[in-house]
């Protein structure tokens, strides 16, 4: 059994319900990603402390909190990008569709294919728009032209970029696009590997308000097919786009921890924790 198999298949395992439900789990959606006892260390420094978190399927979860609270570190555990950071160490379990992504016979390469990551700054490859989107499928063995054409077109469509580039996407370099277009290209590129989960690490922080709005609209569209986790420092953005919100902060030992998680409306209007209230009302951070 490999986590590479799409969960929609008939023989997909029943999603394991957490035995210890994290506080305030009010959605009924199945759990896509589940973290238990998650700790991240960079060398001797603990960056993330004891995070338990459930991320429901087909919903948008946002991570908010002051900078340095480990949001990005946690996000990068979900597709094992921390493996590539020298000196980084991850403790605890992360389940994707009920399977441990750090398991012995799980390949990081497979995890990263199932779990896409969109970076803070748009980072298209220095190649054509077409080749950018086709990059993932090609590396994973799709060489049929017609199949690739279809993937590229549909992913550019899903990323709401198709109309803007359809005339010259085979010739034009990805780098020639505007910042917002580049970021949507990066999203299209991620979608092309057919992930279950799309992680977004402050995807709009390098973009202007109009481009930001487009990405936010896009996220709402994508929710139907994907599970989305977005790290953002912009609380309005979290409030606008996400179904659920997790608030992190930094402890006295400067390691980040989860304060509370709940439906976005609750977190912003009626948080249970004083720390959360201070943060969302702008009194802190």
């Amino acid at each position: 059994m490999s986590i590479a198999d799409p969960p929609a298949r008939a023989d997909a395992p029943e999603v394991t319900r957490p035995t210890v439900a994290p506080s305030s789990l009010s959605t009924s959606a199945p759990i896509k990603l589940q973290a238990r006892g998650l700790n991240v260390y960079y060398g001797a420094k603990r960056a993330v402390r004891d995070v338990d978190l459930d991320i429901p399927a087909n919903a948008i979860m946002s991570f908010i909190g002051p900078s340095g609270c480990g949001k990005t570190s946690i996000l990068r555990c979900f597709d094992r990008m921390n493996d590539l950071v020298p000196g980084a160490r991850v403790e605890g379990t992360i389940m994707l569709n009920g399977e441990d992504i750090n398991g012995r016979d799980i390949l990081p390469v497979e995890v990263r294919r199932r779990v896409g990551l969109v970076f803070q700054r748009p980072n298209p490859f220095p190649m054509t728009i077409y080749d950018n989107v086709a990059y993932g499928p090609r590396r994973h063995g799709t060489s049929n032209r017609a199949a690739l054409d279809e993937i590229v077109e549909s992913c550019l469509g899903r990323a709401a970029l198709w109309d803007e580039v359809k005339d010259d996407y085979r010739k034009k370099s990805g780098l020639s696009l505007s910042g917002g277009q580049q970021q949507r290209l990066c999203i299209a590129r991620t979608l092309a590997t057919e992930p279950d989960v799309v992680l977004m690490d402050e995807p709009c922080s390098a973009l202007d308000p109009i481009a930001t709005l487009k990405i936010e609209e896009l996220m709402a569209d994508l929710r139907a097919r994907y599970t989305i986790v977005i790290v953002t420092h912009n609380m309005q953005q979290a409030a606008r786009v996400s179904d659920r919100t997790a608030f992190f902060t930094m402890g006295e030992d400067r390691s980040g921890y989860l304060v509370e998680v709940g439906d976005t409306s609750e977190i912003f209007t009626n948080p249970r924790e004083r720390l959360t209230e201070d943060y969302v009302s702008g009194r802190f951070g």
Partner: peptide, 8 residues
């Protein structure tokens, strides 16, 4: 998948 891993 196997092949790309072998290549690597």
């Amino acid at each position: 998948m196997k092949r790309t891993l072998y290549a690597d």
